[in-house]
Every structure is written in structure tokens, then in C-alpha cells.
């Protein structure tokens, strides 16, 4: 067994265990922390696949931003055990199953297309470097990038509008 395979198995085990921890843990904070571990193992996978930029972005955005946001929300609105009366909504399990099926279908589609598609070339491996990613994003995918930027701006302005205190005189 080669060293990289051993490494893969260890990281994959950590990744799967933490993913299980996210859904089985009874405390929201613990779930969030398991999710953090999961995100970081994903970043490790990206590095082993030669996608360094993606790995760094994964840690910056998900570990450094989104999980912290989740922790904030849990801390500020209370963190009682999951499973109380507030957690029971009739449609939650169905929505979960539907989303799971959707995700499984996407994964099967991706695997199938990569099985019959072309194998990874040197170009594809080079494509993970920051420069290559930047060039692709700002030439081929410039329209989606700009649209995402506008979307984020709109979200920002919306949040400002919601959080703004009404003026003292106005009703």
C-alpha cells in the first residue's frame, strides 16, 4: 500500500466520522464543530488532488466564515438539545429525503460522466493553481461571477435595510 493511499484512508475515515457526527450529535454546537472538521478534511482532499486554490478558498470561506456564522447564531438564539418540541415539523423528514435523493443523483451522474469521459491530463492538474483558476473565472465565466457579485451586493443592502433603525421622528 502506498503512502498516499494510507493517507487517503485516514483522512477519509476522519471525514466520514465527522459527517456522521454532524447528523447524530444532540448539541447544535457539537454538530457545527463536526462540520468544521468535515470542511477541513475536504480541504485536505482538494490539496491532494492538486487544487490548492480551492482548498484555501474552502478553509477561508467555509471554516473561517460560514461555520463561525453558524456558531454565532447558535450562541445568540440559544443552544438547547436537539429533539425538543420545537424541532418537530411535519415536512422536515420529507424535505431531507428529497434533497438526499437529489444529491445522490447528482453524484451518480458526475461519477458516470467521469468514468466514460477523458482521464485527467497535465492541463487538468495545472488547472488547480490560483493563476489558472483566476484566468478561467475572469474570462470564460465572467458573467456568472459578475452576477454573483451583484447578488451579494443586493443581499448586503437588504441586510442593511432590515437592520437599520427607524429614524426617531418618522413612524
Amino acid at each position: 500500500m502506498s503512502a498516499s493511499l494510507v493517507f487517503f484512508i485516514v483522512v477519509a475515515a476522519v471525514s466520514l466520522t465527522s459527517a456522521l457526527g454532524v447528523v447524530t450529535s444532540r448539541w447544535p454546537i457539537h454538530s457545527a464543530l463536526f462540520m468544521l472538521v468535515n470542511f477541513i478534511t475536504l480541504a485536505v482532499f482538494y490539496v491532494t488532488l492538486g487544487a490548492q486554490f480551492l482548498a484555501a478558498a474552502q478553509v477561508i470561506i467555509y471554516a473561517g466564515g460560514i461555520v463561525i456564522l453558524i456558531l454565532f447564531v447558535v450562541m445568540l438564539i440559544g443552544s438547547e438539545k436537539i429533539g425538543g418540541p420545537s424541532g418537530h415539523r411535519l415536512w422536515t423528514p420529507y424535505a431531507g429525503v428529497a434533497l438526499g435523493v437529489l444529491m445522490l443523483a447528482t453524484m451518480i451522474y458526475t461519477f458516470a460522466s467521469s468514468l466514460f469521459g477523458a482521464p485527467g491530463t497535465a492541463d487538468a492538474i495545472e488547472a488547480g493553481h490560483p493563476k489558472a483558476v483566476g484566468m478561467t473565472l475572469f474570462t470564460q465565466y465572467i458573467l456568472p461571477i459578475e452576477m454573483a457579485a451583484v447578488l451579494l451586493l443586493v443581499a448586503l443592502i437588504g441586510a442593511l435595510l432590515l437592520a437599520r433603525q427607524p429614524k426617531a421622528g418618522a413612524q
Binding site: 490548492q52 486554490f53 484555501a56 478553509v59 471554516a63 473561517g64 454565532f72 493553481h129 490560483p130
Partner: peptide, 19 residues
């Protein structure tokens, strides 16, 4: 080849201990 991004990424997770 992501030295800068490494610094940004680690700076991002530095606040976990305190939170």
C-alpha cells in the same frame, strides 16, 4: 504556491478558540 492564502485561511480560523 498558496502561501498568501494560507495566511488568510489560518487568520480566518484563529477566532475559534476564543469563541
Amino acid at each position: 504556491n498558496i502561501g498568501f492564502l494560507w495566511i488568510l485561511a489560518i487568520a480566518g480560523i484563529e477566532s475559534y478558540g476564543i469563541i
